[in-house]
Structures are given as C-alpha cells and as structure tokens.
C-alpha cells in the first residue's frame, strides 16, 4: 500500500523536475500543471505517526498550513523567483508536496463538512478573482512571462474554476432519490 504510493509520488516529483524546462516555459503549465502535480505528490505521501492527534482536531492546523503555503505560491514574485533563483526553485519542489499536498491530505478528511464546502466555494470565487486579476492587470505581473501568456493564465484560472465546479457539483446531483425514501420514512415519523 505504502510503497506503490511512495513510488508514484516520487515519479510525479521526478516528472515535474525532468520536464521543468518545458513546463516552466509557459505560465499556464507552470502554475496549472506543475504546481498541482507537486501538491498531488505530497498528497500521496504517507502521513507520519501522530498526525491524527489532538493538535490536528478538525484538520484546522493542517488546512491553514496548506492555505498559507498556497498563498505564498500565489504571489507573482514567488513564481518569478522560482524561475530565476535555484534556491527558490528547490524550495518549490519541497514546499508544495510537504506544505500543500500532504497537509491537505492530513487535514481535509478531519475537516467539518461545512468547512470543506466553504473552502470549495471560496476556492471557486478565488479562482474567479485570479482570472480577473491576470486578464485585467495593467502591467506584467511576472517578469518571466509575456503579457499575453498572463492573459492565457487568467483564462486558465477561469477554466479551472469551471472544471472544479462541475467536478464538485456533479456527484451531488445524483438523484439516488429513488433509494432514499426508505431512509426518509424511517426518520420522519
């Protein structure tokens, strides 16, 4: 169980590393492919002993960790540095798996369903805002990327928001309603 997941995580990180030149050449693939790939690799890592402890009740600490790490990588400045500064590039390959993917894995299942729903709605609205920012910015936000790539990235954020919305809402539609009445009758009267 652990070994295949570990190797898959390693493979993902390796892929993100090996193909970093083409991936980072375009901000769309850099931000919407490489970064999620690294976070996904982190989510596959096994949780250390004790992560189910009292300090992680409700998953708050872990989710907040991931939120702050994501906020850091949302700064255009961080993206520029990841391209130009090897030390920042290395920290990207470390922090996205360890400070975004892994904490989300450890926090999310413990989070209250309401918090999860709220974060999902928040993520959609936030992606919408990012889409606006990157399509409407009066200046280049990243020195490493062209203005028209910036606009494409904004459109990419919007597409991601729509895709996530469908991904998250579609399973909820499921009119398993036909099966539900039995449960309903039992609990209503």
């Amino acid at each position: 169980m652990t070994l295949p997941r570990l190797s898959l995580a390693a493979a993902l990180i390796a892929a993100a590393w090996v193909f970093r030149a083409p991936l980072e050449a375009d901000p769309v693939t850099h931000i919407l492919v490489q970064l999620p790939l690294l976070a996904l690799a982190g989510a596959l890592l096994p949780g250390a002993r004790g992560t189910g402890g009292a300090w992680n009740r409700g998953g708050w600490a872990m989710i907040l960790t991931a939120i702050f790490a994501m906020a850091f990588w949302m700064l255009p400045r961080s993206i520029d540095a990841a391209v130009s500064d090897p030390a920042v590039a290395a920290s990207k390959f470390l922090s996205l798996p360890l400070l975004v993917g892994l904490p989300l894995r450890l926090g999310w299942p413990r989070a209250h369903p309401l918090l999860r729903g709220f974060l999902k709605a928040q993520a959609l609205a936030m992606l919408g805002v990012l889409a606006f920012l990157y399509t409407h910015a009066p200046v280049r936000l990243c020195n490493a990327y062209l203005a028209e790539d910036q606009v494409r990235l904004g459109t990419g954020f919007l597409a991601t928001a729509l895709a996530l919305a469908v991904l998250w809402v579609a399973p909820l539609l499921g009119a398993q309603g036909a099966a539900a009445p039995a449960r309903r009758h039992r609990s209503v009267s």
């Binding site: 300090w55 992680n56 702050f68």
Partner: peptide, 28 residues
C-alpha cells in the same frame, strides 16, 4: 488544535510578511 492553528497562522503571516517585504511588494 487551537494552539496549533494559531501557531500556523502566525508563522504563515510571518512568512508572507517576509516574502512581500511587509506587504509592499507582491511582484518581482
């Protein structure tokens, strides 16, 4: 859990503060 969350928030804010020169520079 509360203590851990507060610690994360404080650390997170410190990192973001540092990374943006005190909220002054979001871009390179």
């Amino acid at each position: 859990a509360l203590a851990a969350s507060v610690a994360v928030v404080l650390a997170g804010l410190a990192v973001l503060w540092q990374a943006t020169d005190g909220g002054q520079a979001l871009t390179a």
